[in-house]
Design a protein around this nucleic acid. Structure first.
Lengths: 194, 194
DNA sequence: CAATTAACATACAGGCTGTATGTATGCAAC
DNA sequence: GTTGCATACATACAGCCTGTATGTTAATTG
């Protein structure tokens, strides 16, 4: 249609089309059940374009997940303004995480297929660097550097898991208010000593 | 070698060989990277035998997971003797779960590949009926039927997730004592109101 | 002992992944 | 402005894998 487009423009458009089509199909059918022919048809490009921009199917999946994790992290940072007191920021960030993860398909991408396809380590390097870090900093801000009978690092990991399953439950149809309340209750009991 | 074997004996031997070989390979390489030709070579049978005993590759995987989940549940029930007081039984069961899940490969089977292959619902119907149920009953025994600001059902889900990630962390090389301590601390703070 | 059936074994069709090779267009230097 | 190169694809192919359909052997049953 456009008679002339610069090379970077073409490449960016193709990349974006692939990422969007892949994201939709990965959410609808899962990673394993989505074939690269399907993806390129949906993106209106060819498999050649896919393998030109991405090393393989998994690399495309990784790129989709990095975008998604960044979107989640952005939504959290939006509410975790530094002018809030630590405890309020922690609660606000917690609720923001659950809201961000309630975008349809995000739990499947980041919490179900992600760990299986990229490994529980590979996924950790993607979003633990983003979302779970806010939690760790929030806990440390409330509890102080070396406080209690438990390791902050370990407790961060455990609470992060609880957050994730709360998000899964909510997407699966559970009452959001019920799980948000339970989650906030859990966090507050952990920081109760401070 | 054996000149005569009854049909049920043969079938059971074949089934077991397939389950053991599949379990080993699924743990070593993951579900997606393990092919049915590999499995039958390891089990010293043919693909015909596999598809005679199991509907498809996923069905074999499901059978492996049911065995594994049952083994975990058995180890928990072993320590959750009914003569203990509720709170002690809860702590003992918690530690037993983490020990049971530290059998190499179990976390990958039950917590990583399981949800991705069978769906987070399918896996729930396998082990939530087993392991997480003990937790739910333990919590209710300590807290009473309808106690607090949170739903017991929801809190069970959240704590269960924390348990799972503690098991993952331990298998990934983290200090077991550190995560056991944090986990017990978390449980005790939840039941602190009682 | 005849017939049936369980328990496999073998062969095949279709689809998918990744790579190798071919092509056209933007871009840069001269 | 044309020559050369690199980018951005497009096409074709080889190998593997899954599930099914069909064939075979041995145990069981009436």
């Amino acid at each position: 249609m456009q008679p002339r487009r610069s090379n970077p423009e073409r490449a960016e458009a193709t990349r974006t089309a692939l990422l969007q089509a892949a994201r939709r199909l990965f959410i609808e059918k899962g990673y394993a059940e989505t074939s690269t022919p399907e993806i390129v048809v949906a993106a209106q490009v060819t498999r050649g374009a896919l393998y030109h921009h991405f090393a393989d199917k998994r690399d495309l999946f990784r790129a989709v997940l990095e975008r998604e994790a960044k979107a989640v992290a952005d939504e959290i940072e939006k509410v975790a303004a530094p002018d809030k007191r630590p405890r309020e920021a922690l609660v606000a960030g917690s609720l923001a995480y659950l809201d961000a993860m309630s975008v349809p398909g995000r739990t499947r991408l980041l919490l179900i297929d992600g760990p299986a396809v990229l490994g529980s380590m590979g996924i950790a390097s993607i979003d633990e660097a983003h979302a779970a870090r806010s939690l760790s900093e929030g806990l440390e801000a409330v509890l102080g550097p070396e406080p209690n009978a438990f390791s902050i690092q370990a407790m961060t990991t455990l609470l992060s898991a609880a957050f994730d399953r709360a998000a899964l439950a909510i997407e699966a149809g559970a009452d959001p208010a019920e799980f948000k309340a339970a989650m906030i209750c859990l966090v507050e009991r952990v920081v109760a000593s401070a």
